[in-house]
């Protein structure tokens, strides 16, 4: 399960990464009540970089990427996205959310809207795009994720894999500069994982900046520039995929990899 490798074997990892910073996280801490979830996290993501975050359950991976688009508030440290520092200022939060797309484990499509409406809603209301243009763009992205023919169905009528691809298209319709993925394939049946991973590989090839929480190590090897390993709210190890998998440094990384690659 952890080793389902995407078929298109293009060496995405070799794609160019610019020197501009997309996301900068400095000394960030977060607590849930008394519980210290994220401890002094530092992470810099360059434009066009693709980062895979992995780690045991409860290590704070979701919390970390949810802080980046302010779905969770951090209590200390800095998060700077595209030059805008995240504060409690609602205007800044809205601006950052426009620029950061997010794909959830459970898709979170809007069940009362058609696939097309799901995709055009945010462009129309947030970007004030004319409906016609929003429809065109949505159809383009739905074609990119290979389900244009489902445009007028409702989410409940689609398979899990199709729904997740719609969720990806929905985010892309806002033309974000960064995409966050929180275990996008872990709620899917094995035969659907591949279609979603393929879509993500295609996306990586367009040079999108991506932060992806996943346990799909095949995907990490093929696509990531960097793999970040978290444990107990801390970034324990961060390295290029090749050395990360072949030559992990930290004890906990070794333990984690031995467990996840065992089957």
């Amino acid at each position: 399960m952890a080793n389902v490798a995407p078929t298109s074997e293009a060496p995405v990892g070799a794609m160019s990464v610019s020197n501009e910073t997309a996301i900068q996280i400095v000394g960030m801490n977060k607590w849930y009540g008394e519980f210290h979830v994220l401890k002094n996290v530092d992470l810099t993501v360059k434009k066009g970089e693709r980062i895979v975050v992995c780690g045991p359950s409860g290590s704070g991976k979701s919390t970390l990427i949810r802080c980046i688009n302010a779905l969770e508030k951090h209590q200390s440290g800095k998060i700077i996205v595209d030059g805008i520092e995240l504060t409690s200022d609602l205007k800044k939060i809205d601006e950052i959310r426009k620029d950061v797309g997010m794909v959830f484990q459970h898709f979170n499509l809007f069940p009362h809207l058609t696939i097309l409406e799901n995709c055009t809603l945010a462009p129309i209301w947030v970007k004030k795009m004319p409906k016609k243009k929003a429809n065109e763009i949505a159809m383009e992205y739905l074609s990119r994720v290979k389900i244009p023919e489902q445009a007028n169905k409702y989410p409940g009528q689609l398979s899990g894999g199709q729904q997740q691809r719609v969720a990806i298209a929905r985010s892309l319709c806002m033309n974000p500069s960064v995409m966050l993925f929180d275990e996008p394939t872990s709620a899917l049946d094995p035969e659907m994982i591949k279609e979603v991973l393929d879509t993500m590989v295609d996306l990586a090839q367009t040079g999108m900046t991506m932060i992806c929480v996943t346990h799909e190590m095949g995907f990490a090897r093929q696509v990531a520039n960097r793999v970040v390993f978290m444990d107990q709210g801390q970034i324990v190890e961060s390295n290029a995929p090749e050395p990360f998998f072949l030559n992990p440094q930290h004890e906990r990384t070794k333990l984690f990899l031995s467990q996840i690659l065992a089957h």
Binding site: N69, L71, N108, F110, R170, M174
Partner: peptide
């Protein structure tokens, strides 16, 4: 309503009333 609906709406940049 599942929490995910609120989060998805937020993540897309819709404001509260939207």
């Amino acid at each position: 309503l599942p929490k995910g609906q609120y989060e998805a709406a937020d993540a897309l940049g819709l404001d509260y009333w939207q």
